[in-house]
Design a protein around this nucleic acid. Sequence first.
DNA 1: TATTGTTATACTCTATAACTATA
DNA 2: TATAGTTATAGAGTATAACAATA
Lengths: 172, 172
Amino acid sequence: MQPGQTLNDRMPGRKSPPTSIHDVNLDVLENTLSFYIRSINYAVSRDLDDCLKGCEVARGSGKITTLLLTDSHRGIRPSVLAQLLMTDKSGMTRIIDQMVGHGLIERRTSPTDSRAHELYVTEKGARLASHVRVVATAQSEAFFSDMPESDKGELLRILRAAYRRIVGLPND
Amino acid sequence: MQPGQTLNDRMPGRKSPPTSIHDVNLDVLENTLSFYIRSINYAVSRDLDDCLKGCEVARGSGKITTLLLTDSHRGIRPSVLAQLLMTDKSGMTRIIDQMVGHGLIERRTSPTDSRAHELYVTEKGARLASHVRVVATAQSEAFFSDMPESDKGELLRILRAAYRRIVGLPND
DNA sequence: TATTGTTATACTCTATAACTATA
DNA sequence: TATAGTTATAGAGTATAACAATA
């Protein structure tokens, strides 16, 4: 046991066990960005799922992005989506399979490269995309509504830059 | 089809399909906080899992927090951890079961309320907690190392406040 | 030989509801 | 009747590796 030790800091005078979150400190997680990202993700994702209940794109990461970008980028390729979703080819196949299964998008073989696919939304997919655009925007707005406006702006700027850096997009 | 429409904005002059992420814009997600939180979570969680490979607390949310807080808060209750993790009782049981199974923590019945449990780390758990403290801190630091210092400070302040608001802790 | 996708598998998390025991 | 936890189950995501077809 060493630097940031504990096991209750070597068992000093036994304190009574904490029975409320107000008696607790977050240890090193208090200052750990990844902890807060992960925790808030958990909450915001569940809230989003609630808002999209029964919507065929609820749950998990990738379906909303896939639907929206397929709707707004005619013929977008699975490999492009995979990069933006930071997932691999097999994960992308699974997401597309689901959406094809729900009649939201369709696959066509690229006329310029027979290995590649092009993705297109169906009419049903386009309708759902319109709906999801509204819901996803409103959900995020509502979820962070208690945050000061200036903080929301800062947060968006900082996270946007981080995301673009991670996936390899230029930070214009 | 309406306000933020598309299906490629009503199929204008067919553009060639985007084959690179540089040809893509993020639609409404471009300005949606929840999108960035979810995307960055995905990346940071996988990176953290890599750093903790084989560590008995890799994967999923909650195990790291459970281990660290059990180590630093003698006798902490599952219900308190569940609140901090924003999970429910059954999810908490699963996490604790795993950690007990790995010999990291143990359950005792509270002497003051026979319904409640108190959690304690084992020696093995304390050793792992020390290790995880170092790894989790270093991983977060490394993952966000490309971010300007001032942005890191702002991000921590904003996310910390958001987390505390969500779980019901005061924003001191 | 590298790239675009698909398939298969094993593992884990998530959500829900029903249940036990104690206060 | 409410609270602290446990159990059971169905559905879904995740990671890996092996595979097929085309460039």
